[in-house]
Design a binder for these strands. Structure first.
Lengths: 226, 226
DNA sequence: CTATTAATCAAACGAACGTTCGTTTAATTA
DNA sequence: TAATTAAACGAACGTTCGTTTGATTAATAG
């Protein structure tokens, strides 16, 4: 057996040498930096591919080899743009939370009374979540995979976003348009219900996004107004 | 650097040799079948530990070595009770769905009018989901990790359970107690909102389970009754 | 035109993964 | 008590993982 393995080792070595020679021959044709490659584009492609793969398989199940293949690059090349797999997830989640908060702030204050503000929130949340399904799925399912050092930051940002809804409800209670609502629980309930949409929504479904929004606006408003 | 790594390799080899000797010495004391070991108990322990670990870290992130350590057994021993890691997840999800459906069927039909049936469903769903958080978290977050051959089965069972709510809503519409509700969307919305509870509920929180149920019953009923 | 920087590749690393296997001991049966 | 079955162990298997490295080419700046 020991002789056999030595023989095999020899064969393997010879084969490796042959492959190396073949590589050297090909090197004149295809190698290293590719024509037209631009770093910024590659980084964008990496982030997009990561979103797609994590949404489909989950963060832990996605390998950097799959990610690299999706981008059309070698596994090692990803590390020019990403510190580590963990840091990549952190970046995706943080960018999403920041974008979510900013986009709502752009709309906020358009209406004055609590009822129209609540309707606006429902519409915004559903539309934004359907349009960025991958971001949302990642942000909601992969918190566990996020390193402890990053998690608190994302959780804080999420709470910050949810505070917008709590403020609307609170103003409604003060103005006596929403009687007897428990701010905390109601906010959780509404958000869960709205976020849930992007887990069953299908573009070719029976209802349009606007119709889905209307159904939810009615449910929410009747729920809190009574 | 090459010299350093050779040095480390040498140290590692020496240490491995020492450990091997220690193992051989211990063999006279601790080995093989342990006293008082019962197969059924071990299987129960494996399922319980798997639930705990998957809930905390996710299915892909849990390793069989962690699972074995949690049970207090060697990694290979797990395979006496489990066909594969995938089959373990499938078993956990299927058992949960079956139990969920059965437990609701035991309660169903206690009330007659759609309103009291809807209230009963809200109460049951929240209480059951809080009490079996691990099961619920797994069933809701790990569908992606489930092999395609098993997934359809779990999805069917889930839809079967959700049909209970759709039937209640449908009866309410026929009896003209719930005017103008979209059966499909409303059912999704209610379930998402109720399931959401077990992602924020804390036993030492401000409200008791009963109080949380009351808040949701009110929200849901006002939402569908108008 | 030359030197420098940006971008990528091929190859390898050790570690950890799920899983298999032959052996060994505890409990049960005949 | 002897033979059989149940339960677990320890060690290893081949594979794949995230990551690092040094060489190599494309684009850009001087």
């Amino acid at each position: 057996m020991r002789i056999l393995s030595r023989k095999l080792l020899g064969i393997a070595r010879a084969r490796a040498e042959t492959l190396r020679l073949l590589c050297r021959m090909k090197k004149a044709q295809i190698v290293a930096r590719t024509k037209g490659s631009v770093g910024a584009d590659t980084k964008t492609a990496i982030y997009a591919a990561a979103k797609k793969l994590i949404e489909a398989k989950g963060f832990e199940a996605m390998t950097l080899r799959q990610l690299a293949a999706e981008v059309g690059v070698q596994p090692g090349s990803v590390y020019r743009y990403v510190e580590s797999k963990d840091e990549l997830l952190q970046a995706l989640m943080n960018l999403h939370m920041i974008s979510l908060i900013e986009n709502w702030e752009k709309l906020e204050g358009k209406g004055n009374d609590p009822v129209s503000r609540l309707k606006a929130f429902v519409a915004f949340h559903i539309r934004y979540h359907i349009e960025r399904r991958a971001d949302v799925v990642i942000a909601n399912l992969e918190l566990r995979s996020l390193g402890e050092e990053y998690r608190a930051d994302v959780v804080t940002k999420r709470s910050q976003y949810e505070a917008n809804l709590r403020n609307i409800l609170s103003d409604g209670v003060k103005a006596e348009v929403f009687p007897n609502v428990d701010l905390e629980v109601t906010a959780y309930a509404i958000i869960a219900m709205l976020t849930g949409v992007c887990f069953w929504y299908r573009p070719d479904g029976r209802l349009s996004i606007d119709e889905i929004i209307e159904v939810h606006q009615k449910l929410v408003l009747q729920g809190v107004v009574g």
